[in-house]
């Protein structure tokens, strides 16, 4: 470690350049990870906030929840496997506020309040973002699907679906608005048993049935994966070039008896120091951005994500540096002795 640090201090500029590039790549990776997670929350916070369980949807709906409509017999079958199952529906819609301004939202109605807020007939509980737009508790809102106004009964944090804020309404209001007396989906935390004519989905599988969710996440995750690969290659190329310049020194050190593993440890220590400093800076800046980003921006970076990303960067840096270190293993003391040196 001491030798690694000494060398870095001696040749500061080359290590600062590498560190700067790693810092920029890690900052970009964390930013895109934050954006991917933010978009994921924006697209599906309603589902992501639910506990792990099984979602049931009509088989004939072909994985499009809005085409699903559970029959009474299907509802009974789900109740047979889990008496506490929740039934719910989601419909994209809109409402007009007291100033006749239109707002789009996803109406959600459920059979009980196990996983969603309890709401009385004639009331609506809205996502917090509407409060930021000026709506307040007690305000009334209307829409073209019903003559009855709904009173805002409260707000909930981060409840979004398909990039729209959610409004929770009672099943009676939902029935009158959409002229239906059933639900689209069932959710059970206790059973994942197969039910005739219903498709079962885990939470992650259900997220992928949301239009655009998987396409959006795959694109961003692809970029993140490429950034990891680039950082690994960068370490490999950088240490390859540095090691080529140091082969003479390595050869002499091997000649006097220094173990090859000691030379590898020196390189790993340098990789570790550069990566940790770069990650600390990148994490700090990302976290500041997380705090100060405009509220409308879908950016959500968690400590877990920072820790996983950092672990991935360190692991990839280790692999990249080790691959480039094959030269260290190959170098013969004789090569170095026959060359000039300090």
């Amino acid at each position: 470690m001491k030798m690694a640090w000494k060398e870095m201090m001696k040749y500061k500029m080359r290590y600062i350049i590498l560190g700067s590039i790693i810092f920029l790549i890690s900052l970009l990776t964390l930013s895109i990870s934050g954006l991917a997670n933010g978009l994921s929350q924006d697209n599906a916070a309603l589902i992501k906030n639910m506990p792990e369980g099984t979602f049931y949807m009509e088989e004939s709906a072909e994985e499009s929840y809005n085409f699903s409509s559970l029959s009474d017999s299907q509802i009974n079958e789900v109740k047979n496997i889990d008496d506490n199952a929740t039934f719910f529906s989601i419909q994209m819609g809109e409402f007009n506020d007291s100033e006749e301004q239109k707002h789009s939202l996803a109406y959600v109605s459920a059979s009980d309040d196990q996983h969603f807020p309890a709401v009385e007939q004639g009331e609506i509980i809205l996502d917090q973002s509407f409060a930021e737009e000026g709506l307040a508790e007690g305000d009334t809102i209307g829409n073209e699907l019903t003559d009855e106004d709904l009173t805002v009964a409260g707000f909930v944090e981060q409840e979004k679906f398909s990039h729209s804020p959610v409004g929770f309404i009672s099943s009676d209001d939902y029935s009158s608005m959409y002229d239906t007396d059933t639900f689209q989906l069932a959710f059970s935390t206790e059973s994942d048993a197969a039910v005739d004519e219903l498709s079962a989905f885990s939470n992650d599988e259900f997220l992928n049935t949301i239009p655009s969710y998987s396409a959006e996440q795959l694109s961003l995750n692809m970029i993140i994966a490429f950034l990891y690969v680039i950082s690994g290659m960068l370490f490999a190329i950088f240490f390859y070039m540095i090691n080529v310049q140091k082969l003479g020194t390595f050869g002499i050190l091997k000649a006097v008896g220094v173990k090859t593993i000691t030379l590898f440890k020196m390189m790993w220590a340098q990789m570790f120091i550069i990566t940790v400093i770069s990650l600390l800076l990148a994490s700090g800046i990302s976290e500041l951005f997380n705090i100060f980003a405009p509220s409308g921006m879908p950016f959500h970076l968690t400590l877990d994500m920072i820790l996983y990303s950092s672990a991935a960067f360190i692991a990839i840096g280790f692999v990249g540096a080790t691959l480039s270190g094959i030269q260290i293993k190959k170098v013969e003391p004789m090569q170095a002795i026959n060359q000039g040196g300090a």
């Binding site: 030798m3 000494k6 001696k10 020194t249 002795i337 060359q339 040196g341 300090a342």
Partner: peptide, 9 residues
């Protein structure tokens, strides 16, 4: 050795 080959850093 012919050259000192000291570790430069």
């Amino acid at each position: 050795f012919q050259q000192a080959h000291l570790v430069p850093f």
